[in-house]
């Protein structure tokens, strides 16, 4: 009987095998490769031949003067993105909900979803072009309005703002989808009852639409907790320059420069491990909270 069961399940194991092997190589091997952080690693000696140095690189990481600044930049930029990226889609979904001509609504949706599908290389190219202090269209408009031109991508104050605004701009449209789906799922009789009770549109929004969106709002807020150390690697890499490292450099870009451009493999791995562990805790907590309070399961 047991052998029959195994034989029945055999094709299922066979289907999983190729994917399993690839995941073991490309996801689990790098987890083993964390040993680099505890070695004086050189590619020539590899993971097994490099000498062990204990926590040396973790000490070095915490003793570097710029580490705290970069951690702060990362958390600051990521938190701003999470907050703005949470509020804007909700507001836009509420506004879209008030549009009752279907074709206008669809047209607006078509345009605001678009940036989501562009890579940061394309968007970075567009931003560098339109924000250029000498020839960009944004500064041309500022000048036309009698204002001083701003070097958006080279100014320490403006750079993080550009990161947050452009990230929200790229994603807000796409993120309205879940909220519009939630609004569409609200029972219409609730609105009828509210109208019977004399509620105007504003009261209906406040007492029917918003409560109807609340579960998905809670879920999105909780899941975004896992991104507190993800300030947007590709975006920053595309837009930043040495002149804005002070406010624009984040953990991911620091790891990249250190590890793959100046070949300090062990130090970069140590910083990467710090990030991975903190992110792991945050993501696990956020999934647990989402499961606990929003009854959300990923599978």
């Amino acid at each position: 009987m047991i052998s029959f069961k195994w034989r029945r399940e055999l094709p299922l194991h066979a289907m999983i095998l190729p994917g399993l092997v690839l995941v073991l190589i490309f996801s689990y091997m790098p987890m083993f490769g964390i040993v680099i952080a505890f070695q004086k690693f050189t590619p020539f000696h590899g993971w097994f031949g490099s000498p062990w140095v204990g926590l040396k690189y973790f000490e070095e990481m915490f003793n570097r003067p710029d580490t705290m600044q970069v951690v702060w930049n990362t958390i600051y930029i990521a938190t701003m993105k999470i907050a703005a990226g949470f509020i804007v889609p909700i507001l836009v979904a509420l506004l879209l909900n008030e549009v009752n001509r279907a074709w206008i609504k669809r047209g607006i949706q078509t345009f605001i979803y678009l940036p989501h599908f562009m890579s940061w290389v394309i968007l970075g190219g567009v931003l560098v072009d339109i924000l250029s202090p000498s020839e960009g269209i944004v500064n041309a408009l500022l000048k036309a309005a009698g204002l001083k031109p701003i070097f958006f991508l080279g100014n320490l104050d403006w750079f993080p703002r550009v990161l947050v605004i452009s990230d929200v701009w790229k994603e807000f449209g796409f993120n309205t989808i879940v909220y519009l789906a939630a609004i569409a799922g609200i029972n219409p009789t609730l609105y009828e009852a509210a109208i019977m009770d004399g509620a105007n549109r504003w009261k209906q929004t406040l007492h029917v639409t918003l409560p109807g969106m609340l579960p998905i709002m809670v879920l999105m807020a909780t899941l975004s907790l896992g991104n507190v150390l993800n300030a947007g690697f590709e975006q920053v890499l595309v837009l930043y320059s040495p002149s804005v490292y002070q406010t624009g450099d984040i953990l991911d870009t620091m790891i990249y420069r250190m590890g793959l451009q100046s070949f300090q493999y062990s130090l970069a791995t140590a910083i990467g491990l710090f990030k991975s562990v903190v992110s792991f805790i945050l993501i696990s907590v956020s999934y647990w909270l989402a499961y606990r309070f929003a009854n959300y399961r990923i599978f």
């Binding site: 995941v23 190589i25 490309f26 996801s27 689990y28 091997m29 790098p30 987890m31 083993f32 490769g33 964390i34 680099i36 590619p43 993971w47 991911d252 790891i255 990249y256 590890g259 793959l260 493999y265 970069a268 791995t269 990467g272 491990l273 990030k275 991975s276 992110s279 792991f280 993501i283 696990s284 999934y287």
Partner: peptide, 15 residues
């Protein structure tokens, strides 16, 4: 594998 990553450098070394 979604929850935890080895990080950029070990990933690069693996490849």
């Amino acid at each position: 594998t979604i929850l935890f990553h080895g990080g950029l450098i070990p990933w690069y070394m693996t490849i």
